[in-house]
Simulated assay, not measured.
Amino acid sequence: MATTGPWASRVRRRLVLAGAGCCLLAGLGYLAGTDPHDPSSVMPRCPVRAVTGLDCPACGGLRLTYDLLHGMPAAAARDNLFLLVCSPLLVALVVRQARAFDRGHPAPLPRPLAYGLAGAALAWMAVRNLPGWPLSPTSV
Rank of each mutant, 00 (worst) to 15 (best):
A120Q: 06
V127W: 12
L62F: 11
D79C: 03
Y30P: 07
R10S: 11
R13L: 06
G61V: 00
Y66L: 01
F101E: 03
W133H: 13
P57S: 10
T52N: 03
L31M: 11
G5S: 13
G71Q: 04
S87E: 01
D38S: 11
L69W: 07
L68V: 03
V94P: 07
L84N: 04
L31C: 09
A107G: 09
L130D: 10
L62T: 03
A100K: 02
R128M: 05
A114R: 09
R45C: 12
R103S: 09
R63H: 05
P57N: 00
R45N: 15
L81H: 06
V48W: 12
L17F: 08
L15T: 07
A74L: 15
L117D: 02
D67M: 01
T4F: 12
L122D: 01
V42C: 06
A2R: 15
S41G: 12
A77S: 15
L69T: 09
A76K: 12
A77G: 11
Q97C: 14
R13K: 06
Y115G: 08
G71W: 14
G60E: 03
A74V: 15
H37P: 10
Y66E: 03
P36L: 00
A32F: 11
A98N: 06
G132C: 08
R103T: 05
L28V: 05
V16A: 01
W7R: 15
F82D: 07
S87G: 05
D55P: 06
T65D: 10
R78D: 08
A32T: 11
A26F: 15
Y115W: 14
P36K: 00
R103V: 08
V91H: 09
A8N: 02
V85P: 05
Y66K: 00
L90Y: 00
A121E: 02
A120H: 01
V91C: 15
A126T: 09
L117V: 06
